[in-house]
Nucleic acid binder design. Structure first.
Length: 749
DNA sequence: TATAGGCATACGATTCGGGGCTG
DNA sequence: AAGCCCCGAATCGTATGCCT
């Protein structure tokens, strides 16, 4: 028989791949046999032939083996391809035979499946096969077209719990409301949450969605729901065909990050996406995300304030929250879909992967398509020590006018492409010409073969060029898709240099990474020389950017043309700032089209009190728009009085820090560490890595950091106003010092 | 089990040196 | 005179979050 549908989800079941397809009102479940395999390079495999073992009640054995030709790190070789009955068999063999040169035992089988079959996540597929029970056993599968989220059944999900301090405990607090949105909005609540949970499950099973979208549902909503359901004696059978949801976790920077698997459905948590792709957002609350993405306003109510809402208001808030989740999803999921297509990974996997893992997946895919076998991740020995990165230089702190900001477009990818940089052709044995010597670099690149990395980067750049070309003619939804495509191509291309310097990457080579940055330094310094020759003065460099002021005529476009004539990388003019203040390297602000653009100043950092940042922002705006030092000083002094006279609300003095690692890993007491310890000791609340806390400093004796506390448990009377006054003075002194000196300079001139 | 390095800033912890007291 | 304590300045190292 033949069926077709949108491939929206894949799962692994022993050595089978389970495929979930949506076809109109129907869901198709198919199973495809796969033969897990690994490679043995330069070795005898006698001891593997007939290998058998038992593990967790399963028999693991080697099934077949064959001699195949592959490119091992770019060199064609005959290697053994060894097939086994189960994935765990490959991993077991790798552990049992540490001296054997094994590769590919830990590859992602779903990714391998997608690549081998030429499938894309969310594409339309056609399956030929035989029905076996509720499934179809796949004989042949192929991609026959494109698909999109619109053709799937999506369910948005969130829940709210009222609690004293915003950290509810399942044993004590019942769920206040569960809210779902598919075709229509549904809310479930009851005095005790038993009825609500029951009704929710009933509704969920009735809706039978393909995709579940929430915000932090993996770390918060589902685990809480699971605990509550258990306490109420209810099974949480939210999977397809009544299968239970599974709690699992991923090890990430010394911590287990909770993950939830809902069999048969693509469970997409937006929070880790925001965590990964928007590190600059301090609190990562949905309202903040909505603002960043420009998808309308949503006013977050902190968990600890939910208790003040009536049940009617709570329901209204839940509905608004779920609409906000939907808007964020609609804006953001396009990128995740394109990432999953580019890297051949199931859509539900992509949100949880780091940028490094995504790049790795792409490299693996591209290598596989070319018949390459690369080292496994973490297999290359790490070289000691650091290497030099980007050039950073500031002529002198001060106020400048007419500042042109130029940068080299996609500098590192362009360098990789231009100089054919890739580990297997770097310092090759076949070339005698040291072709990087002219740049003063002692390494060289191959002039006979094109390197894998350079090939991949070139393809990414070329693909992006084509997509941007198509964008010119596209409109509406098509445009959005193309925009997402070019965006992920840029993000991945830009991360590739970092990947070469990542010690556990498949293409790790310190000298190569260092050569990339060294060439970058040479180019930006070369541009500085040119600029100086062409009637401009360079005032600031950072990696691929240079900022200049005119000596005579401010012909910035003319300079751009001249630079591009001389330089083999592409130079762009980002903007010309009317005025600019430079405080230090990586600390400056521009006035562009009447707007303040601040880089690295306290006002862009989350770990400074809100009030201080606001005053600094206003002061910078005044200085940039030409107000005198005296005027600004006057404003700042008036603001200072508000602290002196204790006239601020605690919320205005809040700063935010993020728990960077496990508490035990700390050698020193930072504010966030003290808060995490305090929360655990006083409130029984455990913070996990990556969580942010809104912090205030309370009065008392001892070091400042030891007096950091979460804001919600204290009031204005508890604040250490002296501390805030001291910090205010420190920041304002720094911020105004330059203006004061400039003012004096003018005075004496 | 983490894409890279470069940088400013805060602050606790430690070291150092001077002043003054003691026995 | 030597030894010790106290205190502040200087220095060191950790931590955070930013920039490209």
């Amino acid at each position: 028989m033949k069926v077709s549908g949108i491939l929206y989800h894949l799962e692994l079941e022993d050595s089978k791949v389970i495929l979930y397809l949506r076809s109109g009102e129907r869901r198709i479940i198919a199973e495809a046999e796969m033969r897990p395999y690994f490679y043995v390079i330069d070795g005898k495999i006698e001891e593997l032939k007939g290998f058998k073992a038992r593990e967790k009640g399963r028999e693991l054995r080697v099934m077949e083996w064959e001699r195949v030709k592959r490119l091992v790190d770019g060199v064609e070789k005959e290697v053994w391809k060894v097939y086994c009955n189960h994935l765990d068999c490959a991993k077991l063999i790798e552990r049992k035979f540490p001296t054997m040169n094994i590769r590919g035992a830990r590859s992602d089988p779903l990714q391998v499946f997608l690549i081998e079959k030429g499938l894309e996540p969310l594409c339309r597929v056609e399956i030929f096969g035989e029905p076996v029970g509720e499934r179809i056993r796949v004989k042949e599968i192929r991609k026959v077209g494109e698909g999109s989220l619109d053709e799937l059944k999506i369910l948005y999900f969130t829940l709210l719990v009222k609690s004293e301090d915003g950290f509810p405990i399942p044993e004590k607090q019942s769920i206040s409301i569960i809210c779902c949105l598919s075709d229509e909005m549904k809310c479930f609540s009851s005095d005790d949450d038993r009825e609500a949970i029951r009704k929710f499950i009933e509704y969920f099973q009735e809706e039978d969605p393909d995709v579940i979208i929430g915000y932090a549902q993996d770390s918060e909503d589902f685990p809480y729901l699971l605990r509550r359901a258990k306490l109420q004696g209810i099974d949480l059978k939210l999977g397809v065909l009544g299968r239970e949801i599974i709690e699992t976790g991923k090890y990430f920077r010394g911590m287990i990050i909770k993950e939830v698997i809902i069999p048969g459905r693509a469970n997409i948590d937006l929070f880790p996406i925001i965590y990964r792709d928007f590190p600059q957002l301090p609190t990562k609350r949905i309202g903040e995300v909505c603002e960043e993405l420009g998808v309308g306003e949503f006013v977050d109510i902190p968990n600890y304030k939910l208790k003040e809402l009536s049940s009617k208001d709570l329901e209204e808030y839940a509905k608004q929250k779920i609409m906000a989740i939907k808007k964020v999803a609609e804006k953001e999921l396009g990128f995740q879909i394109e990432l999953s297509k580019l890297c051949s990974l199931p859509i539900s996997r992509v949100p949880r992967l780091t940028i490094g893992e995504l790049v790795d997946a792409l490299i693996f895919k591209e290598a596989m398509l070319r018949g390459w076998i690369l080292p496994d991740r973490g297999a290359i020995e790490v070289e000691e020590g650091y290497y030099a990165g980007g050039e950073v230089w500031l002529k002198a702190p001060g106020i400048y006018e007419n500042v042109g900001y130029y940068d080299i477009r996609s500098m590192y990818p362009s360098i990789i492409k231009l100089y054919n940089l890739s580990p297997e052709v770097f310092d090759c044995k076949c070339c005698s010409e040291k072709n990087l010597r002219e740049l003063g670099i002692k390494h060289w690149t191959c002039s006979k073969r094109k390197g894998l990395l350079a090939q991949i980067v070139e393809e990414l750049i070329e693909m992006r060029r084509k997509v941007k070309e198509e964008m010119k003619r596209a409109k509406g939804e098509e445009y959005e898709v193309l925009y997402a495509k070019q965006y992920v191509l840029r993000v991945i291309a830009n991360a590739i240099y970092g990947y070469t310097g990542w010690s556990s990457s498949r293409l790790y080579k310190k000298d190569l990474a260092e050569t990339i940055t060294a060439i970058g330094r040479i180019y930006i310094k070369k541009i500085r020389e040119l600029v100086e020759k062409l009637g401009f003065e360079a005032i600031y460099l950072d990696t691929d950017g240079i900022q200049v002021i005119p000596r005579r005529s401010p012909d910035f476009q003319g300079l751009l043309l001249k630079l591009n004539k001389e330089i083999s990388l592409e130079v762009e003019l980002k903007h010309v700032a009317r005025r600019a203040i430079f405080f230090a390297k990586k600390k400056y602000c521009h006035l562009v089209d009447g707007k303040l653009e601040a880089k690295g100043l306290e006002l862009v950092r989350r770990d400074y009190p809100k009030f201080i940042k606001e005053v600094q922002k206003k002061a910078m705006e005044m200085l940039l728009s030409g107000k005198s030092y005296a005027e600004v000083k006057n404003y700042v002094d008036r603001a200072r009085k508000l602290i002196e006279e204790h006239k601020l609300k605690k919320e205005e003095l809040v700063l935010v820090e993020q728990l960077a690692k496990k508490i035990e890993m700390y050698e020193r007491s930072s504010k966030i560490k003290v808060c995490a310890e305090w929360l655990k000791k006083e409130k029984g609340i455990e913070l996990h890595r990556g969580m942010s806390v809104e912090i205030i400093i309370i009065k008392g004796t001892g070091p400042v950091n030891y007096r950091a506390r979460p804001v919600q448990f204290f009031s204005e009377e508890d604040l250490d106003w002296e501390y805030y006054l001291g910090l205010f003075d420190q920041v304002m002194e720094r911020s105004l010092a330059i203006a004061r000196e400039e003012g004096l300079k003018r005075f004496f001139k």
